[in-house]
Amino acid sequence: MTNWREKFIELLLIGAASASILIVLLIFLFLAKEAFPFVLDPGIKELLGSQWIPVSFKKEVFGILPLITGSLLVTALATIIMIPFGVLGAVYIAEIAIGRERAFLKPFIEIMAGIPSVVIGFFGLIILSPVLKKIFQLNTGLTALSGAILLALMAIPTVISISEDAIRSVPKSYKEASLALGASRLQTIFKVVVPAALPGIIAAVMLGIGRVVGETMVVLMVTGNAAKITFNPFESVRTMTATIAAEMGEVAFGSDHYQALFWVGIVLLSVTFGLNFIAQKVLTRYRMG
């Protein structure tokens, strides 16, 4: 009797654990099914082009390279911004802040994580973009940099709270050992505590990047949405997510454009998959020592 119940519960748990895998698999299959006809008709080579002109009187082109570089540029800039703020912020909260500061900062940062992206986008559109335009004397404030700053703002709370957990879980004995050798507090933090917490910090940054890559609303609102290949932070770019969000609603069902958008989705999903995979690899390698 008990044996039967054990078995049942085990099955239930396996089911629950597998459900998410199954769902991801189904999403992949669905994407592939919708995207596949594109391979036969315009051909996969079409996707590798450097121009994305989905609506045209002459000839429509579906090169997704500018979308990929757009996402890449915004993500890279956001990462550069979020790492120092996120990691140093975490160090401050975990190691330096006194009780009262921490009691104020922690919930504040958690609230920051909960701001809807459209509100951040709105802030970017009305406040940040004009400021950037003025400072750097640009034609438009809607640039890759504006998007990157806002995305970093959104990802920083995640980076901070996960890094902070990692830093706080470094055994106290490491700190004691370092102090007992005559190291100062800052030396101890940066030469012992942070290195010991590095796997957790890397995971935190990877999660932050994951959030940045997938974020849609903010980039749609503030990056200017010009589909061109550029690595200049002061130019407008168009990301993969913004493209899908902007065009999917108006596209003719089953058309080349429709299928091309599904290809964009596949690329996006692969990128996030790849990021997670790398994060896992890094984590296991560090754990092995």
């Binding site: 055994p171 004995s173 490491y174 004691e176 050992a177 370092s178 007992a180 012992v192 290195p195 010991a196 020592g289």
Partner: peptide
């Protein structure tokens, strides 16, 4: 100082 529980850095 040497501590009760050995605490080499990782």
């Amino acid at each position: 100082m040497v501590f009760q529980k050995s605490n080499p850095f990782p």
